[in-house]
C-alpha cells in the first residue's frame, strides 16, 4: 500500500496535519506503527490504541481505530483494563519517554512483569516536548533542558533494558531513520502474545536539538542514522560498534500470556460448577 492509500485507510484525514513540529521524528514513528498494522492485515475494529499525555500521545487522535487518549503516564494502566476486560482486542500503547518511564514508570514495569498482551511503542525524544523542553528520564547526563540549565546530573534510563528486566517478552529498539526496521519490530511486537516493548528513538529539533546544539532537523536525523548500529552487526564486528548505540531485536522469548492464564482460572471454575 502506498503512503497516500495508507493515510486514507488508517488515518483520520480530517484531523491532519498533525501538531508536531517540522523535523520531529514522531510522524515517521506513527507511520511505522500503522504500516506494521497494515502488513499484519489486522482487523482495525479490533485494534485499540491507547496513549498518555505528551507530544507522542497525540498520535492516537490521528489514527482511525478505537483510540483512547488517557491521563499523563497512565496509558498502560488504562490499556491493562481494556485488555483484561476484553482480551480479544489488540491493544497498542503509544507513549513517550516521560510518559512511560517517569510518571508512568510504575505501570511500565508492572505491565511488563505480568506479560499482558500489549505492544508498547515508546517515542523517545529525550525531552518533555509538549511542556517546552524539560529533562526527562532519558535525557543524557550533562545535556541541557529548561529545568537542567547547568547540565543534567541525572543518569538516563535505558528503556529497553528496563522493560526486559521487568519481564517484557519482546524488546527492540530502532530509530525514526530506520523506519523499515522499526516497522518490523512493531510487527514482531504485535505478533508476540505477551508484553512487547519497542523503543522508537525520535528527535526533537525544537527543544532538545536547540538546547543542546545538535543542529537542525536534518542534522538530527543524520544522528539517528549514524549513532546507531544493529545488534547483529555489532556482535559480528564489535569494532564498528564503538561509541554507537545498539538497535534491533534485543529479546524475543515468548512466555504464557496474562489474560490466557486468567482464562484458565475461569475455565477451571466453570468445570467445577
Amino acid at each position: 500500500m502506498n503512503t497516500s492509500a495508507l493515510v486514507k485507510e488508517y488515518f483520520r484525514e480530517e484531523k491532519l496535519p498533525h501538531i508536531w513540529c517540522p523535523g520531529c521524528g514522531h510522524g515517521i514513528v506513527m507511520h511505522a506503527v500503522v504500516r506494521a498494522i497494515d502488513n499484519l492485515k489486522l482487523d482495525p475494529e479490533k485494534i485499540c490504541i491507547v496513549s498518555g499525555i505528551g507530544c507522542s500521545s497525540r498520535a492516537s487522535g490521528y489514527m482511525n481505530f478505537n483510540t483512547l487518549h488517557t491521563t499523563h503516564g497512565r496509558a498502560l494502566a488504562f490499556a491493562t483494563g481494556v485488555k483484561m476486560a476484553n482480551p480479544s482486542l489488540e491493544v497498542l500503547v503509544l507513549t513517550g519517554d516521560g510518559d512511560c518511564s517517569a510518571i508512568g514508570g510504575n505501570h511500565l514495569i508492572h505491565a511488563a512483569r505480568r506479560n499482558i498482551d500489549i505492544t508498547t511503542i515508546a517515542f523517545n525524544n529525550n525531552i518533555y516536548g509538549m511542556t517546552g523542553g524539560q529533562y526527562s528520564p532519558t535525557t543524557p547526563t550533562d545535556s541541557y533542558g529548561t529545568t537542567a540549565p547547568y547540565g543534567n546530573i541525572d543518569k538516563p534510563f535505558d528503556l529497553c533494558n528496563l522493560a526486559k528486566a521487568a519481564g517484557a517478552t519482546y524488546v527492540g529498539r530502532s530509530t525514526a531513520y530506520y523506519a523499515k526496521q522499526l516497522t518490523t519490530l512493531v510487527e514482531n511486537g504485535i505478533k508476540n502474545k505477551g508484553f512487547s516493548f519497542i523503543e522508537a528513538v525520535s528527535s526533537c529539533p525544537t527543544y532538545y536539538g536547540r538546547k543542546n546544539k545538535k543542529g537542525d532537523a536534518v542534522e538530527m536525523m543524520k544522528s539517528l542514522k549514524d549513532d546507531y548500529i544493529d545488534i547483529k552487526i555489532a556482535e559480528k564486528k564489535p569494532e564498528l560498534a564503538e561509541s554507537k548505540i545498539l538497535m534491533g531485536e534485543f529479546y524475543n522469548k515468548p512466555e504464557e500470556e496474562y489474560t490466557e492464564k486468567y482464562q484458565k482460572i475461569i475455565d477451571l471454575l466453570k468445570k467445577e460448577q
Binding site: T70, A77, F78, G81, K83
Partner: peptide
C-alpha cells in the same frame, strides 16, 4: 492510580 485507570479501561471495553 492504576486501579482507577484500569476500571475506566474495563468500562470502555
Amino acid at each position: 492510580i492504576a486501579g482507577m485507570a484500569a476500571t475506566l479501561g474495563g468500562s470502555l471495553a
